[in-house]
Design a protein around this nucleic acid. Structure first.
Length: 471
RNA sequence: GCUCCCGUAGUGUAGACCGGCCAAUCAUCUCGGCCUUUCAAGCCGAAGACUCGGGUUCGAAUCCCGGCGGGAGCACCA
């Protein structure tokens, strides 16, 4: 099998692209086939130079194996040669009618006079196009189909147009640009594609492209179309993302509020989770909605075992514990299933019988005065009021109901942490000192969720920020 | 408006080509229980679907027709 990935290099890859990439890659790997990356940069106004590199990186992160990469802007001479061939065999014509006139004619099943002219006249106009005799929009190469086709989307379609916009790669070398349907049809044959697996938004394009194959006497590859994916939540529009990054709304292409693959990576979403998700979804032509809970469940299965645990107290209260007679010791495993990995230890020394701890406001505030609770892995206390508690012993109370167990953080050495959530909000709080050593990796903040931690800056390594993955 | 595609639990998915083994699979979600010094993980259990109506047939999720619903396209974007 020879298959291809054909993104337009207008930005980094996002969740929607990941399905196309993973599915094609999965089929190629399963059949020991060949996978091509074909960058479709035939619209000079929508090409972002950096995207060529980004796409390669994103695919590598996804674990997609690319055997060959081709760039369509390197192949214009090839397209011109085949356009000539199409004109010679009468499968195409050059129209110099205004766009609206041409469109209106085909909508009413009416041919324009130029459509009937002989190949030599068409080629003459085509050479004038290439020679710069026309300006943007003044001439276009059109593939002849059936003007009586009941499907209006399938009647004569534009295949090459004129654009004087400079192309980021080829600058002003070309004036005549192939449109997607022509370039794709030609390349799919010239590159030896056997199977084309793409979204069903290309369904009509498949019918259009068939006219080129037939005119040139080529046999068509096997087409498979999968349904549309609705992805709720993150921003996916390249132009909106770019604007947001430019005006500071987003921190970059990996901002957790975006749907880019770099954002997924920043959050600690594993490529293997995405792969499993799309492979299980398969190539059904039904439209689907991306299920975040399912994706997160797959991801959790991958990262749970290797993510060390730490306590995080968002929006913390400082609570004075009175009546403490000696130092309080605490030790908690880095991972409850892997005691061999070591422990996080603290020793809290009382001053005048008082020890201070941090407790999340959402945990502490709702507690009624007089409530008996336990600080996880350390001691019991009774709430007196909003800022004070009394020490109530070290051992876990036996008999009766087990007290509520709270996460807490020792104030001395605690690190400030800001966690950015994909939905937008930022949770600011304090995380236990030991988490500093995990910066750069994914941790589980107990009862809060999985977060990738990063030092906020090189100058301030003790201040952290985090990207929230999921619970 | 025209054309094409699709319709199995909340979300996805298997089964449909070659009707019966489907009182419909698996995953996720939800809800119980066990375990647990995380409301995590793990273990056990429960609930939850063939879009509707006709037809063919001894028998239809599966074949046929129609309705309804959803999506895509009708770009000199990809």
């Amino acid at each position: 099998m020879v298959m291809r990935l054909a993104p337009g290099p207008s930005g980094p890859l996002h969740l929607g692209h990941s399905r196309m990439a993973i599915l094609n890659d999965a089929y190629c790997k399963a059949t020991k086939g060949t996978l091509l990356l074909r960058l479709e940069d035939t619209d000079p106004d929508r090409v972002m130079l950096e995207a060529f590199e980004w796409i390669a990186q994103d695919l590598q992160w996804l674990g997609v194996t690319i055997h060959t990469t081709v760039v369509q802007s390197d192949r214009f001479d090839l397209y011109y040669a085949h356009a000539r061939r199409l004109l010679e065999v009468g499968a195409a014509y050059v129209s110099t009618a205004p766009e609206e006139v041409w469109r209106d004619a085909k909508l009413h099943n009416r041919p324009l006079p130029e459509r009937h002219e002989a190949p030599h006249a068409q080629l003459e106009r085509f050479d004038k196009m290439l020679g710069g005799a026309y300006h943007d929009g003044e001439a276009v190469l059109v593939i002849k189909t059936d003007l009586a086709d009941p499907n209006p989307a399938l009647r004569d379609w534009a295949a090459m147009r004129i654009s004087t916009s400079p192309h980021p790669r080829t600058k002003d070398r070309y004036l005549v640009y192939p449109l997607m349907n022509l370039a794709v049809a030609l390349d799919d044959h010239l590159l030896g594609l056997t199977h084309v697996l793409r979204g069903k938004d290309h369904l009509n394009n498949t019918y259009r492209q068939r006219w080129v194959f037939d005119a040139l006497g080529w046999s068509v590859p096997h087409y498979i179309h999968y349904g549309r994916v609705r992805i709720d939540g993150p921003e996916l529009s390249t132009s909106t993302m770019a604007a947001g990054i430019a005006d500071g709304t987003y921190s970059g292409w990996d901002d957790v509020r975006l749907g880019t693959l770099r954002a997924m990576e920043a959050r600690g979403i594993e490529p293997a989770a995405l792969r499993r998700y799309w492979v299980e979804a398969g190539v059904n032509e039904v439209d689907v909605v991306l299920s975040w809970p399912t994706l997160y469940a797959f991801n959790k299965e991958l990262i749970d075992d290797r993510s060390d645990r730490f306590c995080f107290t968002p929006d913390p209260r400082t609570v004075r514990i009175e009546g403490v007679e000696g130092p309080l010791e605490r030790s908690s495993p880095l991972h409850p299933s892997h005691p061999e990995r070591g422990e996080r230890r603290s020793t809290l020394h009382p001053h005048g019988g008082v020890v201070e701890v941090l407790i999340a406001g959402a945990d502490w505030d709702p507690l009624p005065n007089g409530a008996l609770v336990r600080l996880k892995d350390m001691c019991n206390l009774t709430k007196v009021d909003g800022t004070t508690a009394t020490f109530a012993g070290v051992p876990m109370p036996t008999g009766g109901r087990r007290p509520q167990i709270l996460q807490w953080v020792e104030p001395i050495g605690a690190l400030p942490l800001q966690v950015r959530r994909p939905e937008g909000p930022v949770d600011a709080g304090m995380v236990e000192a030991a988490a500093g050593a995990a910066a750069g990796g994914v941790v589980q903040l107990e009862r809060y969720g999985f977060v990738r931690l990063q030092p906020t800056s090189a100058e301030r390594p003790t201040q952290l920020h985090g990207a929230f993955a999921h619970r």
